[in-house]
Amino acid sequence: MTAIEPDMKLDLRGSEALAEALRARRGADVTINLARVVQFGAHAAQTLLAAHRSWEADRHAFVLEAPSAAVEEALRILDLDNEPPFSGEI
């Protein structure tokens, strides 16, 4: 499984870097560690939702690990905290 540690700020710029890292790993199982993230925006959520759908279609593992408090709060505000991949369902 390939590990990705995204930028601490997953704003527009950080989301673009995350999307690039994901594209480079398409076709492999991935784990994304969100423990260090201090800023998590809607672009980051959309990036992860789209990637999850792609990985699911490709039948590869897509795991989000250790979401920080900032990630959890943003997902709650965006009403995505119960949606895969954020709900823990893969």
Rank of each mutant, 00 (worst) to 15 (best):
36 R>Y: 02
9 K>A: 14
38 V>C: 09
71 V>S: 03
59 R>Q: 15
26 R>T: 04
36 R>E: 11
45 A>N: 04
21 A>M: 11
52 H>K: 03
69 A>E: 14
30 V>D: 01
68 S>I: 06
33 N>R: 10
61 A>W: 02
37 V>G: 01
35 A>S: 14
53 R>Y: 07
65 E>I: 05
16 E>I: 11
62 F>M: 07
27 G>L: 04
20 E>I: 12
20 E>G: 09
73 E>Q: 14
57 A>C: 06
57 A>H: 09
37 V>I: 11
57 A>Y: 02
49 L>N: 01
90 I>M: 14
42 A>V: 13
39 Q>S: 12
51 A>S: 09
34 L>R: 01
83 E>I: 15
43 H>N: 12
59 R>K: 15
67 P>Y: 02
49 L>I: 10
69 A>W: 06
76 R>P: 00
66 A>S: 15
41 G>V: 04
85 P>Y: 06
41 G>C: 04
7 D>Y: 07
67 P>L: 05
16 E>T: 09
21 A>E: 13
39 Q>N: 08
4 I>C: 08
41 G>D: 09
16 E>N: 09
28 A>P: 00
80 L>G: 03
55 W>K: 04
17 A>D: 08
66 A>D: 15
51 A>Q: 03
74 A>C: 05
16 E>H: 08
77 I>F: 10
6 P>E: 06
66 A>M: 12
50 A>K: 07
9 K>W: 07
51 A>E: 00
39 Q>H: 11
85 P>S: 06
83 E>H: 11
10 L>D: 00
82 N>K: 14
28 A>M: 10
64 L>W: 03
5 E>D: 12
29 D>P: 02
72 E>H: 07
90 I>N: 14
89 E>N: 10
88 G>N: 06
38 V>I: 12
35 A>V: 10
45 A>F: 01
80 L>Q: 01
22 L>P: 01
39 Q>Y: 13
4 I>R: 08
60 H>C: 11
13 R>N: 12
88 G>W: 08
27 G>K: 06
24 A>K: 10
71 V>P: 05
26 R>C: 05
62 F>W: 08
48 L>A: 00
85 P>D: 05
31 T>I: 11
87 S>F: 06
65 E>F: 07
26 R>L: 14
63 V>D: 10
29 D>C: 07
21 A>Q: 15
18 L>Y: 02
80 L>S: 04
50 A>N: 09
33 N>C: 10
63 V>S: 09
50 A>G: 06
68 S>F: 04
23 R>C: 07
5 E>V: 15
34 L>I: 02
80 L>E: 00
38 V>S: 13
17 A>V: 10
73 E>C: 07
78 L>E: 02
85 P>V: 09
62 F>S: 03
36 R>Q: 14
67 P>N: 08
87 S>L: 05
75 L>N: 00
47 T>Q: 03
50 A>Q: 09
22 L>V: 01
34 L>Q: 02
30 V>Y: 01
79 D>Q: 15
46 Q>A: 10
19 A>K: 08
50 A>W: 06
27 G>E: 03
2 T>V: 14
61 A>Y: 01
17 A>K: 13
14 G>I: 00
35 A>D: 11
14 G>S: 02
86 F>M: 04
